[in-house]
């Protein structure tokens, strides 16, 4: 479903990604780990072209999104993205945050979108917050609503860019629980995170990115129990 070929990205003279090739199948939960500045977030942000790659190709469902003339808005509407800093729209209520995109893109009328938003909010136990503004909410609530906002578009894949890194420790659990639920429902997920426990438990595959390349990848049990790459060994020894 996601096919990345020899992806490169430079910011000025700094080469952040130096040739990443990766195929992600439908239903996979791929967790990406690596030291800060390794390029893991850039890799994720290239997948929906929030960063414009400087080299290589990316295919989503066999459509090359790096090709000229590709309708990237259309492709993005099928891919949900969750940010480290939530990026809820502060001038809109929770419900408006969730319904804005489906209604603007004419996928639903306002009434159906409202109904769907209430369903999704009910699922995370925040239905009573529907008419409040984001700054009334805790970080954990904000992030779960940000996930719901992405889900309202019925995406085929969800991209998570360090979704728990900006949260107070006691709120990490509720967000991870919700993500775990999504994984169990069969959602295809690509997750950049520092939560090793979550990676071990939920991932079908773990990638280790350092210096702009994938240094190692494996299913989680082997990955954590039996790392091969020296850099990965030293990284795991620091974070575990």
């Amino acid at each position: 479903m996601i096919d990345v070929r020899n992806l490169e990205k430079s910011f000025g003279d700094v080469k952040v990604l130096r040739g990443i090739t990766q195929t992600i199948q439908k239903g996979e939960k791929v967790v990406v780990i690596g030291p800060s500045g390794s390029g893991k977030s850039t890799f994720l942000r290239c997948i929906n072209l929030l960063e414009q790659p400087t080299g290589g190709q990316i295919f989503i469902d066999d459509e090359e999104i790096t090709a000229k003339g590709c309708d990237i808005d259309q492709v993005r509407s099928r891919m949900g993205m969750v940010f480290q800093h939530f990026n809820l729209f502060p001038h809109l209520t929770v419900k408006q945050n969730i319904t804005l995109a489906p209604v603007q893109l004419k996928l639903m009328n306002q009434k159906d979108a409202d109904k769907r938003a209430m369903e999704l909010l009910g699922r995370i136990g925040l239905a009573e917050k529907a008419d409040e503004y984001p700054n009334m909410l805790s970080g954990g609530q904000k992030q779960r609503i940000a996930i719901v906002r992405a889900l309202a578009m019925n995406p085929e894949v969800m991209l998570f860019d360090e979704p728990t890194s900006a949260l107070d420790p006691e709120m990490v659990g509720e967000v991870l629980d919700f993500m775990r639920e999504l994984a169990n429902d069969g959602m295809t997920m690509v997750i950049v995170t520092h939560e090793m426990g979550f990676a071990r438990e939920v991932a079908t595959r773990v990638l280790f990115i350092d210096e702009g390349v994938i240094m190692e990848q494996n299913e989680p049990k082997e990955f954590f129990a039996n790392p091969q790459n020296e850099r990965l060994k030293s990284f795991l020894s620091k974070v575990l």
Binding site: L50, D73, Q74, R76, M81, L100, Q104, A146, M153
Partner: peptide
Amino acid sequence: EAGRSLGLS
């Protein structure tokens, strides 16, 4: 970014 990631122009 959040707006664009939802598919809005």
